[in-house]
Amino acid sequence: MQYEHHGESSHRDSVTGRSFVQPDREECYDQMMKDYFIEHPRFPTHDFRRWFRMRRELFESILNADVNHDHCFVRKINIIDRRSLSPHQKLTSAFRMLANGCSADSTDEYCRLAESTTIENLKSFCQAIQAIYRATYLCKPNREDLKRLLRKADKRGFPSMIGSLDCMHWEWKNCHTGWAGQFKGRHNKPTIVLKVMASYDTWIWHAFFGVPGLNNDINVLWSSPMFDDVVNRWAPKFRYKVNGNRYELGYYLTDGIYPS
């Protein structure tokens, strides 16, 4: 069974007029499991991390959370007694789009999702992630969180270090021509900057997104609300010494572009 789609797609990042062949979903699912998710998969651990940008254990944890949260990720049986797409197929499609910046119809050959299904699946995935994890991530550390972070940092030789701070650039493929100049960074492509504060266990408790890619890391830092608590004297106080100097505020690990 197959159908063809002709004409212009409403999704500009996808290939116009590309035909989608309805394949055997069970065969695709079995191949995907053998490639990555069985006990001894075809592709080793480092290949999984390269394709998905995460460990397999983290992928499985997110998959189980999504299935428990949103019924659309549960595998169903339709009226003709045919099983629908598996959660592994849906999440693999979403992660490959997010990790590699690829278009919606570029995942159909492996994941077997049509273009429109892929886009709706990605929207549902992002909404589920926000609902599941927003209570944990992107919230300021409380006293217990700070104690845990400080204990770990102290063991590693960084007393009163709260976390690591850095920026990354997300390419904006469909940036408006009139805006391209202010969004073009060092790679001469329009990008949007994401600034993140993360702990040793990759707990992201601060994120600032949306600054044009023309800005460097220092300009992004000055634009963000990162130090509002320090300016307003709400930041927690610490007392410690480094090289004989006394300090009362925690600090962050950064690269060489940031000021002391």
Results as ranks from 00 to 15, higher is better:
residue 256 G to V: 08
residue 98 L to Q: 15
residue 245 N to S: 13
residue 174 N to A: 06
residue 114 A to E: 00
residue 120 E to F: 09
residue 184 K to I: 01
residue 92 T to C: 15
residue 15 V to D: 10
residue 49 R to T: 00
residue 46 H to V: 13
residue 71 H to W: 14
residue 11 H to V: 06
residue 13 D to L: 03
residue 128 A to P: 08
residue 82 R to V: 15
residue 121 N to S: 09
residue 122 L to F: 06
residue 104 A to R: 00
residue 95 F to K: 02
residue 128 A to T: 09
residue 228 D to W: 12
residue 187 H to E: 08
residue 258 Y to P: 00
residue 153 A to Y: 09
residue 114 A to Y: 04
residue 16 T to R: 10
residue 150 L to H: 15
residue 120 E to T: 11
residue 64 N to E: 07
residue 37 F to N: 07
residue 135 A to K: 07
residue 234 W to F: 13
residue 215 N to E: 03
residue 137 Y to K: 11
residue 24 D to W: 14
residue 249 L to M: 09
residue 73 F to L: 09
residue 85 L to E: 05
residue 106 S to Q: 05
residue 101 G to D: 15
residue 241 K to P: 01
residue 6 H to E: 09
residue 256 G to E: 08
residue 57 E to C: 14
residue 188 N to K: 13
residue 95 F to T: 00
residue 100 N to T: 03
residue 125 F to A: 01
residue 72 C to S: 04
residue 144 E to P: 12
residue 105 D to H: 06
residue 259 P to F: 04
residue 92 T to L: 14
residue 26 E to S: 06
residue 233 R to A: 12
residue 238 F to S: 14
residue 86 S to R: 02
residue 229 D to Q: 15
residue 252 Y to D: 14
residue 182 Q to F: 05
residue 220 V to A: 13
residue 152 K to L: 12
residue 77 I to H: 00
residue 238 F to K: 12
residue 134 R to W: 07
residue 49 R to V: 15
residue 155 K to M: 07
residue 71 H to A: 13
residue 161 M to S: 10
residue 242 V to H: 07
residue 182 Q to N: 06
residue 16 T to P: 06
residue 49 R to W: 02
residue 236 P to F: 05
residue 226 M to Q: 09
residue 47 D to V: 14
residue 79 I to K: 15
residue 89 Q to V: 11
residue 143 R to K: 11
residue 138 L to F: 02
residue 154 D to I: 11
residue 169 H to Y: 06
residue 237 K to A: 13
residue 75 R to C: 04
residue 36 Y to E: 05
residue 19 S to Q: 09
residue 212 P to V: 04
residue 51 W to T: 13
residue 259 P to N: 15
residue 247 Y to L: 00
residue 223 S to F: 09
residue 159 P to A: 04
residue 168 M to T: 03
residue 164 S to F: 15
residue 206 H to V: 01
residue 80 I to R: 11
residue 46 H to N: 05
residue 105 D to W: 07
residue 105 D to R: 01
residue 78 N to G: 05
residue 84 S to Q: 01
residue 69 H to Q: 12
residue 148 R to W: 01
residue 69 H to L: 11
residue 38 I to P: 13
residue 160 S to I: 01
residue 103 S to N: 02
residue 131 A to F: 01
residue 41 P to N: 10
residue 258 Y to W: 07
residue 48 F to V: 14
residue 58 L to R: 06
residue 205 W to T: 12
residue 115 E to N: 10
residue 243 N to F: 00
residue 64 N to W: 01
residue 11 H to T: 10
residue 175 C to A: 14
residue 83 R to L: 10
residue 202 T to N: 11
residue 260 S to C: 05
residue 214 L to T: 03
residue 183 F to I: 15
residue 183 F to K: 01
residue 257 I to N: 11
residue 157 G to Q: 04
residue 228 D to T: 05
residue 135 A to L: 13
residue 208 F to K: 10
residue 200 Y to E: 07
residue 192 I to A: 04
residue 109 E to G: 14
residue 259 P to T: 05
residue 24 D to L: 11
residue 231 V to S: 00
residue 73 F to D: 02
residue 51 W to R: 07
residue 210 G to N: 02
residue 22 Q to T: 10
residue 73 F to C: 05
residue 131 A to N: 05
residue 172 W to T: 03
residue 51 W to N: 15
residue 176 H to Q: 10
residue 72 C to M: 02
residue 123 K to A: 09
residue 3 Y to V: 01
residue 17 G to K: 07
residue 171 E to D: 02
